[in-house]
Design a protein around this nucleic acid. Structure first.
Lengths: 205, 205
DNA sequence: GATGTAATGTAGACACTGTCAACATTCGAT
DNA sequence: ATCGAATGTTGACAGTGTCTACATTACATC
């Protein structure tokens, strides 16, 4: 009799997701390093070894958390691009804003995703949600190339510049090395817009 | 009688640096997270509380290690730019190559510097070696603006694009999310050169 | 040169952590 | 109804960061 997905005695019902949510909450409280598996279990209301029925490791829990983040990232970027059908340039800017915005709003998970703590080969083969996010960007670039808006080069090459610049911006901000008024969303839009515009039209001349 | 900076009995002589070196060595063996203060002390040949005479915290040790990394980064970039006096564009590319190369060769320390684990406000006021590296880049940009090679914009704005794109490239590589033949240095040069050239001349048209 | 004080290193303890092994409870197919 | 598999618990172990108390040494001052 699984009533409403909360606890109903000995078995939890949906512990795996409960653990992930608890972990995400604790992650924003005590930074990336200060997450304890036992505290996650405590918050979820189970014994300190219960997580091992759902995750092989502490690393596996973090990996699953990072995977969630990659999925969110992919969704946010494609949504942003889809809602701005004013041509590839605007789409690129919109995707960039979505990227940086999500990274800043979930700084700890972003650090998890790209912090190097996780084994990049840990995901199952052919099952890398991180590539989807890059692919979304590459799709925008390709449409821009075909529309004659962007240079006639390998789309991978052009997408790489867009990717690295937005990623670098996001990383510097989440690390706290770029003083920006994060409370004011317009300031972030302007910052991302500035970087994106320079990427599109170049530094030179 | 301080003979040759190695151990000479009860007192070590230069324990602080010995600890930093030991920590750096262990960092490349076990990743960024798997560094134990006790093991650092063990490698340095002292008791497990000796490090507390030189660092308030484990975090303080890591902070000092990161500071070393920032100083190296600044030196590598300015050296690279100084050795290539063929105009701001080439200097920018050279600095970028130096940046990414150092990051890849010292991936773990780079993750330490930018991983968000450290408190960005932990450094003493006015004493932020991280800004020096950015300033080095900004100097190149400024000379390029005055020479009429780069756009007539705020140097900070232009430097930001160069900074973020190189930083993003370095971060993706150190995190292992960009498959590149790291053994072949020419491949890295080409990759950085491609990104830099696209930053300079833009994606558009 | 002797001496006292600060700097430096050590020993032991504490709470906490990740993980393993053994055991308990419950779900679901037969 | 029954039995195996899935899920959760208890207890233990080694390892960790950090605190307190103590030992040893260096060095400025007389």
């Amino acid at each position: 009799m699984p009533n409403d997905s909360t606890t109903d005695g000995y078995h939890h019902g949906d512990l795996r997701n409960a653990l992930l949510s608890a972990a995400e909450g604790l992650l924003v409280q005590h930074g990336t390093g200060g997450l304890s598996l036992r505290e996650v279990a405590r918050v979820a209301g189970v014994s300190h070894t219960a997580p091992y029925r759902h995750f092989r490791d502490k690393a596996a829990l973090l990996q699953a958390l990072a995977r969630r983040g990659f999925e969110r990232l992919h969704a946010a970027m494609t949504d942003a691009a889809a809602n701005v059908p004013h041509g590839p340039e605007q789409q690129l800017v919109a995707a960039g804003i979505a990227y940086v915005q999500l990274a800043v709003n979930h700084a700890e998970i972003t650090q998890l995703m790209f912090g190097g703590t996780l084994d990049p080969a840990a995901d199952a083969a052919g099952d890398t949600p991180g590539r989807d996010a890059f692919a979304a960007l590459q799709t925008i670039i390709e449409s821009g190339i075909q529309a004659g808006v962007f240079r006639q080069r390998a789309s991978r090459e052009l997408a790489l510049v867009a990717w690295t610049s937005m990623h670098g911006l996001a990383m510097l901000m989440t690390a706290g090395l770029l003083e920006v008024d994060t409370d004011n969303p317009a300031a972030l839009d302007q910052l991302v817009g500035s970087v994106a515009s320079n990427v599109i039209y170049g530094i030179a001349r």
